[in-house]
């Protein structure tokens, strides 16, 4: 299981990577593994939308499960990764890279402080698989 240290994590298994005033958001390796083969991605927020921390902006589905994806921090959506509609399996193969879900403009960067770092998140995942 990979927990890269250049991103921060939420309890709902989203990650956020800060790049200046903007951030990229996706779901973690642990999340894709729990869901198994992803077959569908759907975005409920379009570019321009302001999404609050904890609000749903996307959904992913495997053959057995459906999960809502929550925004880790307040932000204005700049772009969603619409290429995933044709290639949902990228979430399984490259969750932190090719399969990013959205890019947002941070509107409340201080919220980042409450998220987990890689070490804390790794421990949190281990605890749940026990």
């Amino acid at each position: 299981m990979k927990y890269p240290s250049d991103v921060k994590y939420t309890k709902n298994d989203e990650w956020v990577r800060v790049e200046g005033e903007n951030a990229t958001v996706g779901i973690s390796d642990y999340a894709q593994d729990q869901l198994s083969d992803i077959v569908y991605v759907d975005f409920s927020a379009a570019p321009g939308a302001n999404v609050a921390q904890g609000a749903t902006f996307a959904g992913v589905e495997s053959v057995k499960a459906a999960a809502d994806i929550y925004m880790p921090v307040d932000g204005e959506v700049i772009e969603v990764n619409s290429a995933l509609a044709q290639k949902p399996e990228a979430i399984n193969s490259d969750p932190y890279g090719e399969a990013w879900l959205a890019k947002v403009k941070l509107t409340n960067p201080s919220q980042l402080d409450s998220l987990m770092d890689a070490a804390a998140y790794g421990a949190y995942c281990k605890e749940r698989s026990a």
Partner: peptide
């Protein structure tokens, strides 16, 4: 059976 994730046994109240 496919696209079962639309259905009640997975989505429940959603």
């Amino acid at each position: 059976l496919t696209l079962s994730t639309r259905e009640q046994h997975i989505k429940r109240e959603k």
